[in-house]
Design a protein around this nucleic acid. Structure first.
Length: 502
RNA sequence: GGCCCCAUCGUUUAGUGGCCUAGGACGUUGCCCUUUCACGGCAGUAGCACGGGUUCGAAUCCCGUUGGGGUCACCA
């Protein structure tokens, strides 16, 4: 055992890269968490390395199976697949920490045997009292006073019925590492005391199991949130202990990703709806759009472009290019990116992605019928360039899946109507009744001829009432196309009904 | 408080000593297109936190100041 860092940092690159995503299953998946998963995944795919998925469920108080399922659901939806880990297995099973107790016990024994961890009997309260008595700031915490406890002293504590926690003996040297996104960072010797890794009841803590699993699973690049930055020197000390105890061969490279901020200068809170992955899915973000936006939080593909595919990201992504500044989650920008991706979809793909939202809103049947499918196919291209998130398809298209008697004219639609709405609508009815070939072009030609040219109405005034009549809304898909989809009979009925209501 | 991180338009990002009288995108403003809403097009708005250095030359390097954030658990 030496009083310095003797373990080497790994130089692994290319297909030797092993990264991991290791969430704790607490609560709903957070977009910051997803961003971390994305960067790890992208780095693995870029290098041709391995992406490991592990679950850190060592906190029985807060962990839940429900949360675990949500993480799985989220990753699957986003398409962030993993090569090794929960569900797919691999050479380092199991991948849920709750099932790795024996492994930790074994590591703890080795660390005890090599003298890198030692027994510590002082409780938190005792430490505080001791600091006060010595005129030492309470915030400084443990003072390493039990490093050289004699066997007699330990025996005496145990005779009192006390069980010791286990602490890692931290070398009294500056600890330096080269952060992949921030460059060289040094923590001066004495920045933190020997820390607890095992509770008196034998329960290993996160401080132990996280680095232990990374070491045992051969993780070469640890890419995680900035909040873990200050615990990195502690982990390096532990890695060093494991190295000297023959448990691992190297210390991984670390890269600390910037925070994802919310309003003000605070981290995006779990209580903020924008932090919830499923909130975005429910609004109708598509994986391509959300991932693209999340990638922009700390990274960029080039100076003049910010809409790109996952394939393009994989080809270009390197942690070294990640910006260390904290990034604010901007819903407007996110929406815009999503809208761009919506427009990039093929019409069929777009149409199929809308279905779920229409079903959830009760606009179409659980089993889409043939006639519903026909309307959907005809209407999807009309709104693909008009919506930002898929859920907007619901108010946009619902009028196509109902009948004349169910149309309710909304207030904002009424507000903008011209005084001559009734005459206009009646004139439209008269014109359309004479049309046999009820197609967009024919409808438009006839209506334009009559209302604009003959009756000299402004287009806005002429078509506004008709739009309201058939959809009940101020905003709708293009008017003539909508009429064609509805068909002659339904269109005339809606127009007549509307005219009568005026 | 100790330690650590961060600092370019409102937001995000390009920029690694001269290509920068600082570029893109979102937002915003005006205009064009237009049956609504969008899409699209054009134009505009707006930024290197501050102070010292180093250098022929600094957004870029160094130091300091200020501001913001994180972390100091027998949580993860």
């Amino acid at each position: 055992m030496s009083n310095q860092i003797t373990a080497p940092f790994t130089t692994a690159s290319g297909s030797d890269v092993r990264v991991r995503f290791c969430p704790s299953p607490t609560g709903t998946p957070h977009v910051g968490l997803v961003r971390t998963a994305l960067f790890n995944w992208a780095y693995a795919r870029h290098t041709g390395g391995t992406f490991v998925f592990r679950i850190e469920d060592t906190d029985a108080e807060r962990d839940s199976e429900e949360s675990f399922e949500m993480i799985l659901d989220g990753l699957k939806w986003l398409g962030l697949n993993w090569d090794e880990g929960v569900g797919v297995g691999g050479p380092h099973e199991p991948y849920r920490q709750s099932e790795r107790s024996d492994i930790y016990l074994d590591v703890i024994e080795k660390l005890k045997a090599s003298g890198h961890v030692y027994e510590s009997f002082l409780t938190g309260e005792e430490l505080d009292e001791r600091n006060k008595a010595n005129g030492r700031a309470v915030q400084l915490g443990y003072d390493n006073s039990e490093r050289e406890l004699s066997e007699e002293a330990k025996a005496a504590y145990k005779a009192e019925g006390r069980s010791p926690a286990l602490r890692v003996r931290v070398p009294d040297v500056d600890i330096t590492f080269n952060d992949l996104v921030r460059g060289e960072i040094t923590f001066p010797a004495g920045s933190f005391p020997d820390f607890v890794v095992v509770r008196p009841n034998g329960q290993p803590l996160y401080t132990l199991v996280n680095p232990v699993d990374d070491a045992l699973m051969g993780i070469t690049h640890v890419l995680r949130g900035e909040d873990l930055l200050s615990s990195t020197p502690r982990q390096i000390a532990l890695y060093n202990a494991m190295f000297e105890a023959g448990i691992t061969k190297f210390i991984p490279q670390f890269g600390h990703l910037p925070f994802v901020m919310g309003e003000g200068n605070k981290k995006l809170s779990k209580r903020d709806p924008e932090s919830n992955l499923f909130h975005h899915r429910d609004r109708g973000f598509i994986p391509e759009g959300l991932l693209n936006y999340l990638a922009l939080l700390g990274w960029s593909i080039s100076a003049d472009r910010d809409v790109f595919s996952l394939e393009e990201m994989i080809a270009a992504f390197d942690v070294k290019d990640v910006n260390p500044n904290p990034a604010r989650f901007d819903q407007k920008k996110a929406d815009s990116i999503n809208a761009s991706h919506l427009r990039l979809l093929t019409v069929d793909d777009f149409a199929s992605r809308i279905v779920r939202y229409l079903q959830d809103a009760g606009v179409v049947s659980k089993e889409v019928t043939a006639s519903e499918q026909a309307i959907l196919t005809a209407a999807a291209p009309l709104i693909q360039e008009r919506i930002v998130v898929l859920s907007e398809a619901v108010p946009m298209l619902s009028f196509l899946f109902t009948t004349a008697d169910k149309i309710v004219v909304e207030e904002d639609a009424k507000a903008g109507l011209p005084a001559e709405s009734k005459e206009i609508t009646l004139a439209a009815v008269a014109v359309l009744e004479g049309i046999d070939d009820f197609k967009t072009e024919t409808i438009q030609a006839a209506l334009t001829q009559k209302l604009i040219e003959e009756l000299a109405h402004k287009p806005r005034n002429a078509f506004g009432p008709l739009r309201t009549a058939i959809s009940g809304k101020r905003i709708s898909p293009p008017l003539f196309e909508s009429m064609e989809i509805l068909g002659k009979a339904e269109t005339l009925e809606r127009l007549s009904l509307f005219a009568r209501s005026l």
